[in-house]
Amino acid sequence: MNLEITTEEIDQKVFVNIKGEVDLYSSPEVRKKIFDLVKKKAPVILINLEKVKYMDSSGVATLIEGLQQCNKYNGRFALYGLQDNVREVFELTRLDKIFEIYSDRESALKN
């Protein structure tokens, strides 16, 4: 299965729904989508990783770039729905302390 990315905007919050595996091959597609949003200075970007089965450091680097760009204009950039193996990559790299990470969409919206 190739990567699928969709976005939905609700009340100035943009949800980026990613489905598939994020690696060296597919991360440029994720990067493009996120950068399109930060260029427009989207105030809230919520990355839905519920259907991401795998992510390597290329994918993580893409999200770090997104967070950094979003911070520049005081936007909010958060992740939710990480599967165990994806969460482990964030924990191993201690990026779980840097990113806002939530279990699900509702929790991400509340905070």
Partner: peptide, 14 residues
């Protein structure tokens, strides 16, 4: 070093 918050360079660490 993990205290450097930047993209890239995480592969060898992992």
């Amino acid at each position: 070093k993990l205290d450097e918050f930047r993209p890239g360079g995480l592969g060898v660490y992992l």
